[in-house]
Nucleic acid binder design. Structure first.
Lengths: 176, 176
DNA sequence: AAAGATTGATATCTCAATCTTT
DNA sequence: AAAGATTGAGATATCAATCTTT
């Protein structure tokens, strides 16, 4: 764990982060604000799908029969249930998804991609992937990708409250 | 399409990203969804400020006289102007910020942190910083921080470069 | 006309009920 | 009662005007 933290800055905020950490944190916040906007613009302009529509469609399309329980979909997207419910209503209105009853559990509800939804996704994918690749992965080497993956995993496991009571050092290497 | 990218998966989406890239990209999207929610919850529960309020107040508090032009603030936050305008209206209603005329440019408008805004921020900072540190920076070493910073910088410069066609190589080293 | 900023209409998100089934 | 899901109301975000000053 971090014992000595050097280079504390004077400003009112963010004390107890080092300069390097602060600097990265600012950048992270900026990325969080700008990357989704850029992806949404490209997607929406070229395919009519919002980034949210796209993510929903990806999850559904990847599932065995193009259908998923609402709760599972919400978990996969890390969305609130009610948000998903509202969003599915809108997507349904546009013919991108449909609903079905759940056989084994009367409380449950299934969402299905329509043919139209599949087609919309297929049309949207190539340009979107190109955008992601050029924006995010251009000239990234294995070591960097490894470090980023380790970082993401560490944060996610902490969010889950997962077995990280013991601050486990993150792997930096890529290849394994 | 692209050059030869190995390990292509079968699913309909995200072709032309390697498995490792895809896997990281999913994690990144999840982080983007969950980290802000977690930070917002902590902040709002313990201080009454939203994450957005917090970011606005940080920028203002860090500026020379606690005041900033609306446009500069919007740039610093990577927000649309209209979004900021609406948000400042709400924050103004709660007494966190005030407005002033701009001397040298009649079109411009200044935002100022109120004393109340400063106090609210000061109350919120310690727990927030602790949360960020424990969630994001716990057990991160210098190499990892360097890789992350290089990554963030690369993506940001591509975003600024506008054209996604220009893929400038990313620096891997930490301390520029 | 262009830049700075605000406004209003609409879309989306969040939070607290609500409803049904287990 | 608890889990799965939806609903409605209020908060926030986005997009296209609008208004003023340069």
């Amino acid at each position: 764990m971090s014992t000595t933290r050097y280079h504390r800055t004077v400003s009112t905020d963010l004390d107890s982060l080092t300069d390097a950490e602060q600097s990265f944190w600012r950048q992270w916040l900026t990325l969080n604000a700008r990357v989704p906007v850029a992806l949404h613009r490209q997607l929406h302009d070229e395919s009519g799908l919002s980034l949210q529509d796209f993510e929903v469609l990806v999850q559904l399309t990847e599932s065995p029969d193009g259908r998923l329980r609402v709760s599972d979909l919400a978990n996969a997207l890390s969305w609130e249930r009610s948000r998903l419910s509202h969003h599915l209503g809108r997507m349904g209105g546009r013919g991108l998804v449909d609903r079905e009853e759940c056989e084994d559990d009367g409380r449950g509800s299934l969402v299905v991609v329509t043919q139209e939804g599949r087609q919309a996704l297929q049309r949207a994918v190539p340009a979107h992937v190109r955008t992601v690749r050029d924006l995010v992965f251009a000239s990234m080497d294995d070591a960097q990708l490894g470090a980023l993956t380790a970082f993401a995993q560490a944060v996610l496991s902490r969010l889950d409250g997962g077995g990280l009571g013991t601050a486990e050092p993150a792997r930096t290497a890529a290849g394994d």
